[in-house]
Design a protein around this nucleic acid. Structure first.
Lengths: 142, 142
DNA sequence: TGTAGGTGCTCTAGTCACTAGAGGTTCAAG
DNA sequence: CTTGAACCTCTAGTGACTAGAGCACCTACA
């Protein structure tokens, strides 16, 4: 049996975050000891590990909820889980593409001003004027 | 003179967002007409355009506030603006690196399950077990 | 001049995924 | 038995908006 602090140490998830996951129903309510403190078993630890790993991979909590709902069902759970993972992969690839455009633009802007030019900053001008941009860059939904 | 709706159309920033920017002091309060509606001049339009472009480039509102504070000052504003832009560029590059690790990991996980295997999903197993991961991937602070 | 509907106003509350703090209780080591 | 770390609940805050309620106003057309 683990205390919430032990769970936190083992998984690397902060204590208030564990309680938060329980609040929103992502983790099942664990048992309590005589003094009303949470006591987790191995299943609780595994569930938290799953959430942690999926969060590290950028899955939204709602995706994780869906993935956990699938686990243990028979039938098409694999197809659904795979679909969620592939969607996530596409999201990540899209974000990378967006960020690469952004990096290009920021490099251009930074190079405008390698020294100082006193009072008329080209960086500020470039930021104010999208027309100067070389490529089209949309919003960075980062 | 522009109404808030006209500002929104020209810049692509939504009306409630413009009001929000004003609320937090990022944009100066514009004048009002007899019926208490906001009326913007060209300077107001330029300021909103600056914010929009900087947001598109991924700058935080606080960074934008700092950049706008610099504009018009004499002296070292260029160095400071350049510094903020370079920091932002570094952030973007870091995020790209993180996301590329993630994409690799997600590809690996997706490939585990190209068909269906009924009832014992390897995607779910892989998500549950960080030990299976090929490289080290930290949290995707996306 | 009347009216209809589009636009504007303020205010509150919700989103996501936590984080921080207050103020109290319980546990474990010495 | 005492001390201090860990735990409890509850509320509120973060960033950058978004949604909705319930009004007031403005403009075009008849």
């Amino acid at each position: 049996m683990y205390s919430i602090g032990a769970m936190s140490k083992v998984t690397g998830v902060k204590v208030p975050t564990i309680r938060y996951y329980e609040d929103i129903g992502l983790l099942p309510e664990p048992g309590r000891n005589a003094g009303n403190q949470r006591r987790y078993d191995q299943a609780g630890m595994d569930a938290l590990g799953f959430v942690k790993h999926a969060r590290d991979l950028g899955f939204a909590l709602e995706d994780i909820r869906a993935l956990m709902g699938l686990d243990g069902q028979l039938g098409d759970d694999c197809a659904e889980a795979d679909q969620i993972a592939r969607t996530q992969l596409q999201n990540v690839r899209d974000r990378i593409a967006k960020l690469e455009q952004l990096a290009t633009e920021l490099e251009r802007i930074s190079h405008l001003c390698d020294g100082g030019n006193g009072g008329c900053c080209k960086v500020l001008t470039a930021l104010g004027d999208h027309g100067q941009c070389v490529g089209e860059h949309g919003r960075a939904d980062i």
